[in-house]
């Protein structure tokens, strides 16, 4: 196992940055273009995961375990966020019979 992982390393750090930037942007595009509240939620999860991957890569790069501990906290936070958010979506659906976020634009007033 350790032989394998040492063999697999050597990817430049900025390729990890590019990958995370691209996946984060895909999440942003999903939030901007979709109207289904659940798909928007999934795009937010994509953004969180892009950040997690980058934190792990930097943690390995600077040989500091704090980054990976932080990723662990982000995962706990994401679990809490998903539970509350999905129950809000269920309640919105119960009241409006739709999860189109444009139905919620009356929250503006």
């Amino acid at each position: 196992m350790e032989n394998l992982t040492t063999q697999l390393q050597g990817v430049p750090l900025n390729h990890y940055i590019w990958l995370s930037a691209i996946i984060f942007t895909i999440g942003v595009i999903g939030v901007l273009t979709r109207r289904n509240a659940i798909v928007i939620f999934m795009s937010v999860e994509l953004m969180l995961n892009a950040v997690n991957l980058l934190l792990t890569a930097f943690s390995v790069h600077s040989n500091d375990p704090s980054g990976q501990v932080f990723v662990f906290f982000i995962m706990a936070l994401a679990a809490a966020e998903v539970a509350v958010g999905l129950s809000i979506i269920v309640m919105v659906y119960r009241n409006t019979k739709s999860i189109d976020i444009n139905v919620l634009n009356r929250l503006k007033w």
Partner: peptide, 11 residues
Amino acid sequence: SPLILKNQELG
């Protein structure tokens, strides 16, 4: 700089 694991026990 390429990403090389300095400490195998890190993660």
